[in-house]
Design a protein around this nucleic acid. Sequence first.
DNA 1: GTTAGCACTCAAACGGTATGAGTGCTAACA
DNA 2: TGTTAGCACTCATACCGTTTGAGTGCTAAC
Lengths: 344, 344
Amino acid sequence: MDLPGRKKKILQAIIRTYLETGEPVGSRTISKYTDLHLSSATIRNEMSDLEEMGLIVQPHTSAGRIPTDRGYRMYVDELLEGKNQEVEEMKSLLLEHEDHLENLLKQAAKLLANNTNYASLISMPTISGNKIKFIQLSQVDRNHILAVIVIEGNLVRNSMIEVDEALDSEALLKLNMLLNSALDGLAVENISLGLIAAIKKQAGIHSELVSHVMDAAAEAIRTDGRPEIYTSGADNIFKYPELAEQSMASQIIGDFEEKKVLGNIVQNTLADSGGKEGIQVYIGDEVPASARGMEECSVVTTTYDLGGGMKGTIGIVGPKRMDYDKVVDALKTVMHQLEDYYKK
Amino acid sequence: MDLPGRKKKILQAIIRTYLETGEPVGSRTISKYTDLHLSSATIRNEMSDLEEMGLIVQPHTSAGRIPTDRGYRMYVDELLEGKNQEVEEMKSLLLEHEDHLENLLKQAAKLLANNTNYASLISMPTISGNKIKFIQLSQVDRNHILAVIVIEGNLVRNSMIEVDEALDSEALLKLNMLLNSALDGLAVENISLGLIAAIKKQAGIHSELVSHVMDAAAEAIRTDGRPEIYTSGADNIFKYPELAEQSMASQIIGDFEEKKVLGNIVQNTLADSGGKEGIQVYIGDEVPASARGMEECSVVTTTYDLGGGMKGTIGIVGPKRMDYDKVVDALKTVMHQLEDYYKK
DNA sequence: GTTAGCACTCAAACGGTATGAGTGCTAACA
DNA sequence: TGTTAGCACTCATACCGTTTGAGTGCTAAC
């Protein structure tokens, strides 16, 4: 759809002011707000047209207009122009020294929420390759063997395996060598049943132990399939009346705690990370994964890439009338900082 | 304070009905509800007395009475009697097979929230002894050494250490033996500076590596100091009008996401785990740790003990007019199951 | 000590009346 | 033909007085 310039400007003006005030905007307001120097009557005519096109609606007969989902869509796709606001502070604020990726991400989420006044989410990176780098079995006590598995990107998983009796250190050494030489450099999802059988055979009496280790490896993927998600600022939704209403808030809060819906959003973002400059904007019903209760929200996400195939999602959840410019800027800032910080 | 029997019964009746309805209860209601066969006028006189004692109040002149914090306190301390409700379902429901403690706890939290219709919290157990059971360094690649530390109770921590150049396998073996013999069985908080210096000395050129390992061990305690907390059913608060009100809800949700306040509650519970049968009830202002926004809530907690010095907290957050009987039952049920399950 | 009766209070619900923001339409104007 | 002023109309919201009903305190009688 291509709008004539004037309608474009008017739509832009309507949405801009609506973003600020959250209240239906009338023709008179626009008449004064724009530099078009048109009377309110003329604006009314144009508005009438825009309404016919499905870009704006009146909540009731004698009210001003508010954007529809399609209206927002057009705004985001065509009328958005970096306003270069002061997300400056973030640039300096972010990332006091933090060793653990987990804490770094939590901090980033908090920062994002505080600076935008929306709710933020951030997922632990998944590893695309899933190559196994190192495996080690250790005897911890008589009945327990600890399996440590290091995956490309230095992610560590461990699994405590219960055994009937202790292995002697020689057998342990052998098993370790066997596992390492068989699995080193292999992508976890490529481990075939045949390979497992072969290893088991070589392991002889310890075949049961081996299958436990394989289970742990499989689990390492499984937890990557539903990556950990950290959130912050869920309470920010109460700042926006259209979300603060009980049934709405209840559902959103539920989603944020349950994390199932958020997981879907993350999956979606990682899957179709096309979008303008890698930014995804979901408006209202566009929010993926039949997210009950998210109909009144917009979700903006992007993917960060820590190298080594480690990719995660950061995102913002807020009312449809969110400050898209600011949010996009903030996301980009955090994304870049995250990437720089980790690569250094 | 000791109340005469009749006043006791009346107070109990008032609170009971208020817990159910959430609305101020009048004299006529009580007159019919109790088996005392007293007229509403008599009840009114008694009520007037109870009000003078600070156990109940009227929200406004011509309204019924609602309990004060002190009223609730008395109810909980003296008038509560196990009603043995149907928390039956929980007994069968709980705990489908789960290997990971983390998942087990998450599941328990969810169950608790679903069955009570309040918000639940559950903390990862802290380890009181903190005895080190096993340490192992492994060369993962040229520049990384993985330190795995197993603590009594089979909790595993790992820390990736960056090094300038690879150690030969003999040196690694030596270091491992050195660390194990020096630290095995030692409580982490008992590691003295002197001991560290001694180990460093013996480690010779690898002293730097050793200090990294010690840091990781220290970190293992640190994260235990602020244990992970899982929550569920925070959205349940919207079921209770007195909590669903915006400013209130916003703060509670904030607390649940931030987890700082919850952490204080957990600390508190672990500290003074006295209480009737180990159950702690905090009513309104009694909630520990200057919990902003929790004034309208009651918090019921207890401590679970997985053996081996591993203790954690489970709790329920709800409106003051919560069904204390049911909540106490539910907490006990989950606590016992948790303990049984883990010990088996 | 208990109860019936009565006057009184007050939140909440109800209904009618402004108020005002905003519209659509028409007719005049450039 | 596009723009504008003017006017009648709509409708959510606020305001105000009235009614309703639940509940109280007090008093007098049992």
